[in-house]
Amino acid sequence: MNDQRAGSPADPTEPVRPVLRLSGVNKSFGPVHVLHDVDLAVRPGEVTALVGDNGAGKSTLVKCIAGIHPVDGGSIHFDGEPVRITSPKDAADLGIEVVYQDLALADNLDIVQNMFLGRERTRGGLLDETDMERAARDTLASLSVRTVASVRTPVSALSGGQRQTVAIAKAVLWNSRVVLLDEPTAALGVAQTRQVLDLVRRLAERGLGVVLISHNMNDVFEVADRIATLYLGRLVAELPTRDTTHAQVVELITAGRSGDLGLPRAENVAL
């Protein structure tokens, strides 16, 4: 992993070099132009919130980065190097991990088994349960997860927040560089949302680049360092959270602009 842990959260006015940079990304589904020239930078040690109304293209953007939909045009740079992401495997190989809204966990398996799903460690052809259990426990411990009775608990016995925690911890276990979270708090209660947001913050503190999709402005303002707003497939603004207000973001989401910020008068945008 990179050694960004000490330097974060970075000063947004002097950004560190992005680990992942999208420039001029376009994506169409047939005649429907979903993403228009999207530029987005994900920096290590920062949480970038991706907001926008329903249908603005947030999920499509995430799926493009995750390799589920290949992009039609534009370029993607990872660590400054141009890369092509055409399959989920490409993304995983680069260290891009996606935590999906509908939780990709198997209920009948326990926490350890789920965290290593598809990438099990073996010794002599057989599963190395001891090694996997230790690694899973160490990872959860390093993330200060203290609400799980045992790493051998089946996922079906976990609460929504705990499941989300396991899904996120899985990303850390794989030494990912970039983690994309699609609405991680959508179905959670107050206390559980708290846990997951803490975890998101901790991911950034470990030097990961985090992209958080959320509809909840409170969540966004609490954990995000930067807020990127999508409006009808265009990335209309990417602003440091500290320079932004609730009202501005809501205007950007609903109208695509707010005062000097946003869409139509590009020459006036002051960043």
Partner: peptide
């Protein structure tokens, strides 16, 4: 096998 039986979509996303 257990993973596919438990949640086919999760298994697919895990690269199985």
């Amino acid at each position: 096998i257990y993973a596919v039986g438990g949640n086919r979509e999760a298994a697919r996303r895990a690269g199985i």
